[in-house]
Design a protein around this nucleic acid. Structure first.
Lengths: 242, 242
DNA sequence: ACCTGAACACCGTTCAAGT
DNA sequence: ACCTGAACACCGTTCAAGT
């Protein structure tokens, strides 16, 4: 199997091994079969390379996972470009995190592991600071980033774990949801608890998410994003008062 | 090393292997050295047993991790007993999740993985439903559980990852925080981004957490927990208006 | 600079055997 | 019912060698 001349019969991706290509392939594998089935040897094979070739572009498996995490944050950042309206930018950040979590549910556990704010996100944050003017960054914005990101990450995590009804999976009928929950709980679970689980998972997720994000942003001191015409996020329940 | 008679020289825990004891030892190991260093063989050794003995109480390593997760939720549930005031119960639930995350930062990634609401939590939820009266559970409470839990989990996760300043670690001086962040970022990171990271991590975490939880609860339709005398959570920033 | 096979230490789990 | 050593398939990584 000397590989100096390309056999050209291979549909398998060959050619230049790149950190980029390795990261992409790793994320594909995670998406398709879960984090636990990501293997250096399997990954190399899927790239048509020898296992050890990976180590020319990646220090270790941990380093690879870090790179995947950063890639995900880059996806998020791309979905939340800076805006002249900081409150709306925070909304889009929340949506970006949540949507990315939905696209990569199996990768969620490596999202927040970096040890610092991931550089791709920092890039957008820095730009947003500039946009919002002032010599010092607005403290409402600073607080908003931390709190909104925390909520969105937590939401994505619980959603991926099935602790929340997923509108995605959800052409799910009432009956189907009940069956899913009943099956997931240990068989001897008392009816009282099964009922509680079914009740909690019955709430409509969309308005809950939007309303909570709005509440958090308002809690940071921003005016409620009232009847702005172009607003993508419609306020839905128990949020307003006036 | 026949073990029919106990040598009595061993300080090592011996005697009856139990699912309980195995779970506790697993959590200890995770707390002490991280999730990745939890090993069936190492765990067995720490319990003074042969590796395969574990499998008499645990179906697989995945099953074990599930049991650890459930144990953590039991800790959380114990810290958030039902209350006559649903809004205050939601506050205590948020605090319980966050505090437990602080005590077990290395275990956070297995918290929300179960696939359903964990039974120990369901137990408290069911009781809280009963307390709040009415034939149907209050929708404000139902929404509150999902949103507050999501926020608290996300907060705990980001906090454990160092994306948020930890008040725990924080007799940390300004200078120390800056050094920590600078070191954690890749060395070639432009100053603009390092500055952004330092700014975001400068905010005081305590009031942010409490204020966000309060905002979410209020967003669910509950009255702001105004000047109730015994309230443990003091409202802190940009939350009130009247 | 990039690639790679062989080899090693380790880890989860099956099996067959013990009490 | 609970325990266990031996064995197996697999996985991350080191090394020495190639181009």
């Amino acid at each position: 199997m000397g590989a100096t001349t390309r056999p050209a019969g291979r549909t398998r991706a060959r050619a230049g091994l790149t950190r980029q290509r390795i990261v992409a392939a790793a994320l594909d594998e995670i998406d398709a079969h879960g984090l636990h089935s990501l293997t250096m040897q399997g990954l190399a094979r899927s790239l048509g390379a020898g296992t050890m070739s990976l180590y020319n572009h990646v220090r270790s498996k941990g380093d690879l996972l870090g790179a995947v995490s950063e890639h995900l944050w880059a996806e998020i950042a791309a979905l939340a470009p800076p805006s002249d309206d900081p409150a709306r930018w925070l909304e889009s950040l929340a949506k970006a995190i949540r949507d990315t979590g939905r696209r990569h549910p199996n990768a969620l556990s490596i999202l927040a592991v970096s040890g610092v704010l991931p550089p791709p996100l920092l890039e957008v944050i820095a730009e947003q600071f500039d946009r919002s003017g002032g010599s010092e960054p607005d403290p409402r914005l600073v607080n908003g980033i931390t709190t909104v990101a925390a909520f969105a990450i937590g939401w994505a995590v619980t959603e991926a774990a099935g602790l929340t009804p997923r509108a995605t999976v959800a052409h799910e009928t009432e009956r189907q949801r009940i069956r899913r929950i009943t099956r997931a709980l240990p068989p001897e679970t008392p009816d009282r608890l099964v009922d509680a689980a079914i009740t909690v998972c019955a709430a409509e997720p969309e308005p809950m998410f939007s309303a909570s994000v709005a509440a958090i942003i308002k809690g940071c001191g921003y005016e409620p994003a009232s009847s702005r015409p172009g607003s993508k996020i419609s306020r839905a329940s128990g949020d307003s008062r006036e």
